[in-house]
């Protein structure tokens, strides 16, 4: 459970796994924000494919990252949301804040790819 971060140039992909609630979101937010700043990310992809449960704490996480990317004139992409999470996303009207995609491809990188894995 937690977040795995892959940086490909200025595109950052955060793969979220496990349950997202008030307890787990704290750590996830922290890890993502550090990586966004360290990599000077212009695009942040939040990958929800490994998420098993999400309540409005996950919406808070998305809204907060939207603000962060907005401040940096970057953009936020929401990817691979499982069906049961889609309902929570719709209540919040998340599609107005971020592009929602079913799939994505990270740019090919010759340089090093940073991977951070956390558990909680």
């Amino acid at each position: 459970m937690g977040v795995q971060i892959i940086a490909a140039g200025r595109v950052l992909c955060a793969k979220l796994t496990g349950d997202i609630d008030h307890h787990t979101a704290r750590q996830m937010r922290c890890e993502i924000d550090i990586a966004v700043r360290e990599n000077d990310a212009q695009e942040l992809i939040l990958d929800f494919s490994g998420v098993t449960f999400m309540d409005s704490s996950g919406i808070g996480l998305v809204m907060g990252r939207y603000k962060l990317m907005n401040e940096r004139q970057g953009r936020l992409v929401i990817a691979k949301t499982p069906g049961y999470i889609g309902k929570v996303m719709r209540v919040a009207g998340i599609s107005r804040l971020a592009k929602v995609v079913n799939d994505y491809e990270l740019p090919k990188q010759t340089g090093e790819v940073m991977k951070i894995e956390t558990t909680n």
Binding site: R29, S57, I59, G60, K87, V91, A92
Partner: peptide
Amino acid sequence: DEDRAGLGFAVMESF
């Protein structure tokens, strides 16, 4: 400031 969306009751109501 703690990234609370303010949607807790809205979720409860709609679910």
